[in-house]
Amino acid sequence: MANKNENDTLVNDCDIITRKEFIAQTSAFTAAITITTSSTKKIINKLSAPAPGMLTVAMNVNGKEKTLEIDPRTTLLDALRENMHLTGTKKGCDRGQCGACTVLVDGRRINSCLHLAAMCDGVKVTTIEGLGTPDNMHPMQEAFLKHDAFQCGYCTPGQICSAVGLLKEGHAKTDDDIRELMSGNICRCGAYQNILDAIKEVQQNA
């Protein structure tokens, strides 16, 4: 009955507002909208647009065929983490500036935060989970462990995917080349020297 009483109160409160007061209040509200900037108007128009349809996308992720129903806005990063629950790939800046989200698409390293999942139909994606497992690590994963190439570990999946992509690209000849070609991966803990050592070891053993 408490609910009913609350409803009654609401109705009664509404009843108290006279027609004159109602018009005065809504006019003020309209005026407030009128003085908003044109960009705000653009945003309001966008919000009232009909919701777009979902898309069906099929991609091979770490050797497994996956079919997803996604909103067109979904980035590959969010599709991996939220739809496929592959949370090894990390979201750092979400703007292509830190490299934490680096994965390999058809063998090339990219920033998955700036790539739409909708554009991944038919592609092959490799994430940190697909490179190796704790029992059967990828040589780059082993080298990162051996050389202590991380502290907090948040940037590490991106660093490792990026390093694997770097060696595949085959353009790094010197330490400075490796540093330059790993510049898209930021490490706040500053493990750069050990990351360099890990990559060099895998490069030399290849």
Partner: peptide, 9 residues
């Protein structure tokens, strides 16, 4: 320009 990942895209 940019980073290797961005240049790949």
């Amino acid at each position: 320009g940019a980073s290797p990942q961005l240049r790949n895209m």
